[in-house]
Design a binder for these strands. Structure first.
Lengths: 152, 152
DNA sequence: ACTGAAACTTTCATTTC
DNA sequence: GAAATGAAAGTTTCAGT
């Protein structure tokens, strides 16, 4: 992972549909070594995949919610079960482990407030061990960028 | 925005480098109407762009941090200034407005704890009006998916 | 007028050197 | 790193609903 690899990653974060020759131009490489690098980044897991960035509101998901959760106890079984159930709930796009008083932060998308209430009641509350649920609705996005900062 | 448009969006969220004909197959459309739909989704802003999903740790950004911020007062100038400064700070990938006691949530990536401390001191504290900064480090990611849930 | 199908042109990825 | 080959992808045009 050298400077050129990071340049390639940032280029593909800015536009994931750029062709190999476009990226080769950007990073001052000829197409074949550039493609070799891209394939290596994909194989090593440095590039996990490619994705369209879609507007949730236009799609029909008007509410984006950050939910912080605390588990009752942190025994191995309770944690396993929670993390397993999380995987099968489609409204949950992300789940991170956090330092501090709360254990997890979820990023959730739902069509409206009513469906959020249903999501909490039907999907989250039934999971054993969940004692605290802190909800923050997103009512605006000030910044959203895909590309990592340059290192140095 | 009908069912097929949403199918196309989910397909491109799963793999942003799929070709038009692959997607056309998936959604049971022939290539040309499928391409028309994709172009319309791009023009309307339903699809904002395409991006590579890269691993921040392998890139060299070992710490992902969620930072919640409260502003002293919410006069128009203070808010404008804050939101403007945010744009020019490369370590900040996302900034959302939140309901509840905190005003903003930032998603920040830095190489290590020391650089996070520098980020807070050099970039965040100097912004006038910032009174509260709550930091949560991410020490694990349980789930991360690009595709929206199916509606209905 | 919108959707589906087909042909042609151009461009990109792959492989070999 | 360059070049040649092979394969798609995009565009355009046409037909049908």
């Amino acid at each position: 992972m050298d400077v050129k690899d990071r340049q390639i990653i940032r280029a593909l974060q800015e536009n994931g549909r750029q062709t190999n020759s476009e990226i080769a131009d950007l990073v001052n490489l000829s197409p074949s070594p550039c493609l070799r690098r891209i394939r290596n980044l994909e194989k090593s897991g440095a590039i996990r995949g490619y994705s369209a960035d879609a507007d949730p509101v236009m799609y029909g998901l008007s509410e984006t919610v950050f939910v912080r959760i605390k588990l009752e106890c942190h025994n191995k079984d309770g944690v396993k079960q929670f993390e397993q159930k999380i995987q099968n709930i489609d409204e949950i796009l992300e789940c991170h482990l956090l330092t501090g008083p709360m254990d997890y932060q979820l990023k959730v998308v739902v069509p409206n407030m009513v469906s959020y209430e249903n999501f909490i009641r039907r999907s989250l509350h039934p999971i054993p061990g969940v004692v605290t649920i802190d909800t923050c609705f997103v009512y605006g996005t000030i910044k959203k960028k895909a590309a990592f900062p340059e290192l140095g």
